[in-house]
């Protein structure tokens, strides 16, 4: 098992792109604790997965990381600066692509820029340069209903990227896709996120997805609905050789290393129902 490196700031002097410090989260202002002691970080170009069974509070943690909700205790730092409870600084992407049906793809993609005050014309000009790179060439003037599930997800990812700050929070982003498209999209996402040096926190209940995509995996354990707050049961560093790291996640999933990492995650989830 690779050695864990929990605090890159110490010694290395690296400030993580996003860092959560000892978060305590609640659904109802304090009476019902969902998660406790959540500390995690993610660097530029790194993909971090949070794995846990359904209902363990993964989305609640992601909401706190995005600033949509305020934790009872703890802080969220964006490149070292406290932005706890302040939405609008990091990108957020959900399993639903959430493209607005009444906007053409280019307008959907440009939405974060337009909201921040960029003129529509400037935003179009900037985004148009990225369409080819994101595999969306020729779709600029189409409506969302004219795109396939995979293409819509690419458009949603380009919109996420344009939200800025190069930090993306992804809530089961590929779970609504069919199995074949999902595998393609995972590979594509890993390649894009690493080449754009984007810091990604992905939540999933799919252990295979976590092991194929992540550089590090945080395993979450707990049943908040039964009064057991979720905590981080362990952190696993996934190391691949260079060819695999380049984005060929499908090949990696066929290696003995993959099975070994999967075993480690499952061992940490032991009492949960993910198996």
């Amino acid at each position: 098992m690779p050695e864990l490196e929990k605090t890159p700031v110490e010694g290395g002097g690296v400030i993580p792109a996003l860092e959560a410090l000892d978060l305590t989260l609640s659904w109802d202002g304090g009476e019902h604790i969902v998660a406790r002691g959540i500390s995690l970080w993610v660097n530029n170009g790194e993909i971090v997965c949070m794995v846990g069974k359904s209902g363990c509070g993964k989305t609640t943690i992601l909401h706190a990381l995005s600033g949509l909700t305020k934790p009872l205790e703890g802080k969220v730092l964006l490149r070292g600066e406290d932005f706890t409870g302040r939405p609008g600084s990091v990108s957020y992407m959900l399993q639903k692509d959430l493209l607005i049906p009444s906007k053409r793809i280019i307008d959907n993609v440009c939405l974060p820029l337009v909201i921040k005050g960029t003129s529509k014309r400037e935003a179009h000009k900037f985004a148009a340069m990225l369409f080819e790179r994101f595999g969306l060439g020729g779709t600029e003037r189409l409506w969302p209903s004219q795109l396939s599930g995979g293409m819509r997800q690419r458009a949603a990812f380009l919109r996420t990227y344009l939200q800025g700050n190069n930090v993306a929070l992804l809530d089961e982003p590929f779970s609504a896709l069919d199995a074949i498209t999902r595998v393609d999209m995972r590979s594509w996402y890993c390649e894009m996120a690493r080449s754009l040096q984007m810091a990604s926190v992905v939540i999933t209940h799919d252990v295979d997805e976590a092991v194929t995509m992540a550089d590090r995996i945080y395993v979450l354990k707990g049943t908040p609905s039964a009064g057991v707050p979720t905590t981080i049961a362990g952190e696993i560093c996934v190391q691949r050789d260079e060819a695999m790291a380049a984005g060929n996640v499908t090949d990696f999933s066929l290696t003995p290393e993959f099975v070994s990492y999967k075993r480690q995650v499952l061992d940490l989830l032991e009492d949960d129902e993910v198996r």
Binding site: L68, Y92, L111, I115
Partner: peptide
Amino acid sequence: DPDMIDLMRTMGASDLQIFTQ
């Protein structure tokens, strides 16, 4: 979809922008 409203808020959208967009 409430998730759409949350997504707009993560983009820093105001109430008026959420309404019009």
